[in-house]
Design a protein around this nucleic acid. Sequence first.
DNA 1: ATCGTAGGCTAACGATCGTTCGTATGTCAA
DNA 2: TTGACATACGAACGATCGTTAGCCTACGAT
Lengths: 214, 214
Amino acid sequence: MSKFSATQRRLAAIATVLPPGATPEGSRGVILGEALRLFAEHGYGGASIRDIAKLAGIKGASVYSHYPSKAHVLAELIRIGHEEHLRRIRSALLAASPEPRLQLIAVVRAHVLAHADYPMLAVVSNAELHALPSEFAAPILELRRQSELLLLEVIRRGESLGAFKVADTELALLAIGAMGLRVAHWYTPELDKTPEQIADAYGDFACRIVGAMN
Amino acid sequence: MSKFSATQRRLAAIATVLPPGATPEGSRGVILGEALRLFAEHGYGGASIRDIAKLAGIKGASVYSHYPSKAHVLAELIRIGHEEHLRRIRSALLAASPEPRLQLIAVVRAHVLAHADYPMLAVVSNAELHALPSEFAAPILELRRQSELLLLEVIRRGESLGAFKVADTELALLAIGAMGLRVAHWYTPELDKTPEQIADAYGDFACRIVGAMN
DNA sequence: ATCGTAGGCTAACGATCGTTCGTATGTCAA
DNA sequence: TTGACATACGAACGATCGTTAGCCTACGAT
């Protein structure tokens, strides 16, 4: 383990943890939470099983009573992160008025809020995806594809209804996605902006990018 | 080293290498280039000195004839990445007409092109910054601050001249920066979009975000 | 002609890695 | 009361890590 704290160069918040419904109880949950902290701060390769175990109050060998390998721990974290992300976008879209502009705002707000509410989970889900053994990657990438598809469909619908004016749909999609992704790296509760304010601003940015009339 | 290729989950391009002026000659340069490839694909912790040496055609111990440590190799890569980035933004701004809108387009274009021209360097400079020992980090973070400041000043000047209408300057800055950052993760020369097209589109997006009149 | 240096090499160091093994302890159902 | 199961443990495995030491060789300058 490194002798320096590099948190500030990776994510700003030491905020709490995992989505309520998704966290297992007992040691399984504690291991998951502490692994998340360490993976977010030092990366998958920079955090050892023994480091995780120590924070969880057990010994390294005991981790294997709960998870078959270190990769399984990472896989579960990334799965939780992507499922929470998709779940939020889905329900936001379901609750939104059918106007294209309001749909876009709803999706972008959900996207941003997911990254501000669980910054560590978002950082690990995105930045450590490359460390995930390929046998675990397929279902994750499918979740990712579905989230992206929802945003894409909202933009396309807005275009075909004449509500949006986009030069390049795909680039707009990528740009809007990227804006939100990055929030996890700098958001902290100590900021003078609430997640709501950020979500509102980014929703507005997205509307401007796609040329949404209002 | 892992037994799977995770390139697609981290960056799309296997493009070539380092900025022309910045690459040392001889083994020093070869080591730097191969280290960049491996750090981009597997992360700093996922690439060993022996892996780098093997690709460079030498043995692990010989790396230490050229660099005092693995961290020094990473530090040099990240320094090159950030210096190239700042250099491009500076010169783009210097060559731009003084109209705020054109200045913003120039800076965003330079930002995007830096990430599309050297995707591996950009990925390592951003995603592996947290792996850099803190004694190396300070000058890097200063470069980063300067690049950010240039964009911020362009936006602020546009606002005060009444050319831009931004609700939250800081959020606009972060959003525009994030858009460009992410390009390095998906751009590949095999795409049906040239870096120029992407830069143009993103320049336009940035103008829309800050409400630049045209 | 010689010598210093640059840049390779093999070998090995101690540390740490993910993981396995065998065992002990506590809890709860039969 | 017994026995099975879940959860913890210490110890150790082989592999790999970053790094160092010592040696060899080719070559350019004196």
